[in-house]
Design a protein around this nucleic acid. Structure first.
Length: 626
DNA sequence: CTTAGGG
DNA sequence: CCCTAAG
């Protein structure tokens, strides 16, 4: 299988994000794609699932730097640290009993060779935690130290923690495997010579057993870091190091910022003694203390926690032939670590993630249910973690397809905001649109749809850009018609690619005719009946939504209250907005009239549906035409 | 889905 | 224009 890696700096946070995905089923012919999750590392070392936006940013990198790695069978949860600031969490994806573990180290080394020197290295030094963070860490360090003092450090020697590898039958990892096995099988961990096979072999012993990072010095932490990630770091920030190491060991980015002990690659809270014992139990029985990782985001493949557990049990024999409590693949071993999630922020996360989702799965439409679902999936074992500080929140992820690959992205509501997607679909092939007036050229139709779904357009990556020379509505040809057309064409053509960032609906300047129609509509149906107005008066301007009408009306009112008076008073219309189409005073007046009339009309202005005097009067006032 | 409002 | 909260 292939491995596409890419990374890029994220200036905003001075962090690096990395994305990788692979899915070359061809090779194995198996449907056992490995899914990696892109996560963003914030300045304080916390990891946050990357948004789709982030993913997008690195999309193009996927093709730049391809690294062919030895076939990796499915390690449930492998994560690789490519550098201090990014990490990929490999998550269990498609089920497949044949999952095996692969040598992480092998990959790491390879990758390291390619990447580390380039970017990573520099990051270590330059991207050290922000100063403010350091200050903070200083403070918390004390706390940590104190806490650490109370934590018993036990059985360092009994458990080894080389993260080398684990079992697997991958042909490519022979060497590593052998090495790993020898080390792991023979308590070589304690033997420096062995670990020293590689002159630069880190001192894994430091990671053995229960690791209380709080007790370690910066130097030790750095060593631990090295042992954990296979590379050195110059970062001197204790907290940062601790976090990273913990994350690495537990393969969880939901690591409390302080006071935690890592044992057997699990975070052991001070108050989580129960868990410890439990894990020990499991470890002895060959069942790794694997907590369940929950990926609530997927509906389609939402494997329940039981799935992971069972799988773990099934494979445990294969996977952990070594020391049961020797989580070789630091990351690998942790396949089943808990992946914590965090509640997505309401507004912007959604926006971001919504951006480029092909929305392959429209089913994830029940965000509301999510919570319950999550709870169900939550493994009891995870509970303790939830209590560990601010990070204890859940951040569901969902699987999404991205450029043919499936990736996990933070779960967010994917409810469509606009009209039903079906419209878009129909729009794609034919155009049985329900256009009221609908007797326009097919091209027109397309455009209209496009317009109608302008909102969706931005959510749909590739828009079959249809060149359209058509002329929308002969109506719109009131001088501004041309402009209109252009706008349309533009919109149709400018969205073919993946929308970077937030693509907004193409801005369509309101034409005079539109304004007139709007005013007329308001006059006839009353302000507030936007839907009606849209249907009846804007049938041909499908890209104007009721909201648009409402907004425009609001703007007109404002214009009425400002521009109008100004003109009257100032006597000179002023070149307020040369570029903006000045709305004829007549219309403005009409607007004002209507507004006053309707607002005064006792709150609920009689919409004058039936040619009331209102309609007449107003029309008369405005421009005779309409 | 519509409206109303705030941004 | 966008985004939400309410119906």
């Amino acid at each position: 299988m292939k491995f596409d890696l890419s990374m890029e700096m994220d200036d905003s946070h001075g962090t690096m994000v990395n994305k990788s995905e692979e899915n070359d089923f061809e090779k194995k012919g198996t449907s056992d794609p490995v899914v990696y999750q892109l996560v963003r590392v914030e300045g304080d070392g916390t990891l946050v699932p990357a948004t789709e936006d982030d993913v997008l940013q690195f999309e193009h990198f996927l093709h730049n730097e391809k690294v062919d790695l030895p076939p990796i069978e499915d390690a449930d949860h492998v994560e690789e640290f490519f550098n201090n600031d990014c990490m990929l969490l490999k998550k269990p994806d498609l089920e497949d009993g044949s999952s095996k573990l692969e040598t992480v180290e092998a990959h790491t080394q390879k990758l390291g060779a390619n990447l580390e020197e380039n970017i990573l290295q520099s990051l270590d030094d330059s991207l050290s935690p922000p100063s403010d963070f350091r200050i903070h860490s200083q403070h918390s360090d004390k706390l940590l130290t104190e806490q650490g003092a109370n934590v018993t450090r036990q059985d360092n020697a009994s458990t080894e923690t080389t993260k080398s590898t684990v079992l697997n039958d991958s042909c490519c990892a022979e060497k590593y495997k052998a090495d790993a096995c020898s080390r792991s099988v023979c308590d070589t961990s304690t033997d420096p010579s062995v670990s020293g096979v590689n002159s630069s072999m880190p001192d894994f012993s430091i990671l053995r057993g229960e690791v209380c990072l709080d007790d370690l010095t910066i130097r030790e932490l750095q060593e631990a870091f090295r042992a954990t990630f296979g590379r050195q770091t110059n970062v001197k920030d204790k907290i940062w190091l601790k976090r990273r190491i913990t994350m690495g060991l537990t393969n969880s980015y939901d690591v409390p910022s302080s006071g935690c002990v890592v044992k057997d690659y699990k975070i052991v809270g001070k108050d989580a003694k129960n868990d410890m014992s439990d894990m020990d139990e499991r470890a002895k029985t060959g069942l790794r203390a694997t907590s369940v990782v929950i990926y609530p985001g997927n509906e389609g493949d939402s494997p329940s926690s039981s799935y992971y557990q069972s799988e773990d049990q099934e494979d445990s024999s294969k996977r952990v032939p070594i020391h049961n409590d020797e989580p070789q693949g630091n990351l690998l071993g942790e396949q089943c670590t808990d992946k914590r999630t965090r509640k997505p922020t309401k507004r912007y996360i959604e926006e971001l993630s919504d951006i480029e989702t092909h929305d392959s799965t429209v089913k994830n439409s029940s965000p509301a249910k999510r919570p319950a679902h999550d709870e169900l999936l939550m493994n009891p074992r995870v509970a303790p973690f939830n209590e560990t500080g601010s990070l204890g929140t859940i951040y569901p992820t969902r699987k999404d397809t991205f450029g043919g690959f499936s990736v996990h992205v933070p779960y967010v509501s994917r409810m469509r905001r606009g009209r039903p997607r079906k419209d878009f679909i129909s729009f794609a092939d034919k155009g049985p649109s329900v256009e009221p007036k609908g007797i326009q050229p097919s091209v027109e139709m397309i455009l209209v749809k496009d317009g109608d779904k302008g909102n969706h357009l931005r959510k749909v990556p590739e828009v079959p850009l249809k060149v359209s020379s058509e002329n929308e509505h002969a109506e719109a040809v009131d001088g501004k018609g041309v402009r209109n057309l252009q706008a349309k064409v533009c919109s149709a053509v400018s969205k073919p690619k993946i929308k970077h960032g937030l693509t907004r609906k193409h801005h369509r300047a309101w034409t005079l005719s539109e304004v007139v129609k709007l005013v007329d509509g308001v006059a006839r149906y009353g302000a507030g009946k936007w839907s009606e107005i849209r249907k009846l008066s804007f049938a041909s301007y499908s890209y104007r939504t009721s909201v648009d009408l409402k907004d425009k009306w609001r703007n007109l009112i404002r214009a009425t209250q400002t521009q109008l008076p100004a003109q009257k008073d100032g006597a000179c219309p002023r070149k307020t907005n040369p570029s903006i189409i000045p709305i004829p005073p007549s219309i403005l007046l009409r607007v004002k009239e209507l507004h006053e009339l309707q607002s005064q009309g006792g709150g609920f202005t009689a919409p004058v549906k039936f040619s009331g005097q209102d309609g007449k009067v107003l029309q008369g006032k405005g421009s005779g035409f309409l």
